[in-house]
Structures are given as structure tokens and as C-alpha cells.
Amino acid sequence: MGELFGLLAFGAEGWGDELAAGAWLTVRLALTTLPFGLLLGLCIALAKESENTYLRAIGNTYTTVFRGLPELLTLFVIYNMVQLLANRIVQFVAPGSSFEISGFAAGVVALGVVFGAFSSEVFLGAIRAIPKGQGEAGRSLGLTAVQTFRLITMPQLWRLALPGLGNLWLVLIKDTSLVSVIALNDLLRQTQVAVGVTKEPFFFYLIACLIYLGFTLISTVGTNALEKRANRGFAMR
């Protein structure tokens, strides 16, 4: 047993530093994806709530496709497509030059696209939970549509969407493990490398699971605190 834990040592012989680096990449990946995915989700939600038929159709198609596809498939396709697409655009704008998207950025885009599809549904639910009269009242006070959204809808949206977004954040942390299948040296991939060398799959995968568990538990505490803060001023029923 002591021998096993020796494998977790930091330094040349142990795998502790590799696992820590992998865990750090996992956290960075999730944290970088979050704002991108939230923004995308909000845009899609607004498109789906829009008066414009075509925007609505685009929003709905987007959600249907990316909520229906396995994350593994989406990640693999987007991861490889993003660079091809970037190449095409760059060749079109400035022929001869090249533009390199790092594996990390491609991973962020791929995870963000999936996160956007799910978070748009949460935002949509939150937008619809705000009584229509509030927006109408805003408009009748002479606010523009943008002002109404910014001053009346947005501040409440946060509170209403938070529980759903908290769940999606947990899903996102777990989904980052799928990028290990592509190329990024995240926690799970570093674990696989360690298993490949040490032939101790049970021990290392258990450690990886516990690290992920730590992330989700910390996140749960964090989102609970955020929810409490967002709900201050609302008496418990």
C-alpha cells in the first residue's frame, strides 16, 4: 500500500506532479469554457425567444443537434473542424498566412458549443419565468428593448438560471474528461499515461475519480453559496 502511494510522489519517479498538472489543465479548461459557453447559451436563448422566425429556427436547430449528439462525437468533430475552418477563413482573408489554434482553444470551443446548447435551455426557462408584464411595463416607461433586457430581465435571469447553470457546470467538469480521448493532457489522460507505465489501473483511476469528486464537491459548495447570495432579499417560502 505504501508502495502505491509512493507512486503519487512529486518528482522524477512519482506521478503526483503529472496528475496535478493534468488536474490543473482540467480546471483551466472548464473555467475558460464557462464564459464562452454562457455567452453562446444566452445568445441562443435570445434567438429562440426572438420574434424573428429564422432566428428561432436557427436557435432550435442548434439545440436539437448539439443536445442530441454524443459529446464524444461532437468533441472529435469540432476539435478537428475548428482548425480546418480557421485555415479556410485565414486563406480567404489573407492568402498564404497561417493561423494556429492550439489544442486547448479547440477543446474550449468544442466544450463551449455543447455547453451553449444546454445552457440556452436553462436561460430560456429563466427568461420565460419572468412575468411578461415586467417587460411590457419597462417598454411603457419608454425603455428600449435592449434597456429592458439589460435593466429588468438580466438581473433576474441570473437568479433564476443559477440552479440549472450549477448543474451544467458539474456536467462540464465531467465532460472535460472526454478531451483526454482527443489530445489534451488533462487529468484523465495523465492518469492513463501513469497507468500505461505503472500497470496499476485500479489505483490510478480511483485517484482520478477522487480528484474529480473533489472538484464537483467544491463546485457544489460554491454554487450553493452563489445561489444563497442571488436569493438574498427573497424570503424563503
Binding site: L170, T176, T191, K199, E200, P201, C209, Y212, L213
Partner: peptide
């Protein structure tokens, strides 16, 4: 419930599959 909801499915599969292989 906490363990299985709090860890990635892929990690669980590796744990069970290659873990079982080890023993």
C-alpha cells in the same frame, strides 16, 4: 450517489474495466 454523479462516466468505465482486469 455522490460518487457516481460526481465523477466522469469515462473514468468510472476505466476504473471498472481495467481495474477488474488487474484483479
Amino acid at each position: 450517489i455522490t460518487f457516481f454523479r460526481g465523477t466522469p462516466l469515462l473514468a468510472q468505465l476505466f476504473l471498472l474495466y481495467y481495474g477488474a482486469g488487474q484483479f
